[in-house]
Nucleic acid binder design. Structure first.
Length: 169
DNA sequence: CCCTGATTCGC
DNA sequence: GCGAATCAGG
């Protein structure tokens, strides 16, 4: 990925707007959040309010320089769809935003057992599908486990915003 | 566990 | 210059 002028501009704008590095990376497409952070640093526009306190960083001496061993990660394909709109690039592309109906082309919710309210147990994911007032309303119904009222997939969707909210002090 | 930004360092 | 790995914190 090349940091074109447009992309850098978008980066700066979004960063100034207070979006997190991962969100910016997701919006730019084709780059990781680390790339965004690294770029931000190079642009010398790091500090933005106080996201993370600058703890006394002083650890990182041991580097087994035996070989140039670095990056066990595989290359990421990633379909980059960069619109690069110069105006209001507000994103919010929530994966499961509209659970109203589930088109086959949508790769969001893994499965859906479409359970009725009366079918729910302590073991079933209680993530609602669709409008509770609608006739098509149902619950996810997958194995919820003990971690919470949702299945693993929906737990993330439900709890990620919470963690984000937490930092908003 | 998830996330956040910060830093280092091989390329 | 770039970004993955790693760190440190919430």
């Amino acid at each position: 990925m090349n940091w074109t002028d447009e992309r850098v501009e978008t980066l700066k704008k979004l960063w100034a707007e207070g979006l997190s590095a991962s969100q910016i990376a997701a919006q730019l497409g084709g780059v990781s959040r680390n790339a965004v952070i690294g770029k931000v640093h190079r642009l010398k526009l790091s500090s933005r309010g106080r996201a993370t306190s600058q703890r006394t960083r002083q650890k990182k001496p041991p580097q087994p320089g035996t070989t140039t061993t670095r990056r066990p990660r595989n290359t990421r394909p990633m379909t980059a769809t960069v619109g690069a709109t110069a105006l209001q690039a507000q994103f919010e592309e929530e994966p499961v935003a509209r659970t109203y109906l589930q088109p086959v082309g949508n790769v969001v919710v893994p499965i859906s057992r479409k359970l009725e309210l009366t079918q729910l147990t302590e073991m079933t994911c209680k993530w609602p599908n669709g409008d509770p007032l609608s006739d098509d309303f149902s619950f996810c119904g997958n194995e919820a486990g003990e971690s919470g009222p949702y299945c693993g997939y929906h737990s993330r969707l439900a709890y990620q915003p919470a963690s984000e909210r937490r930092r908003s002090r």
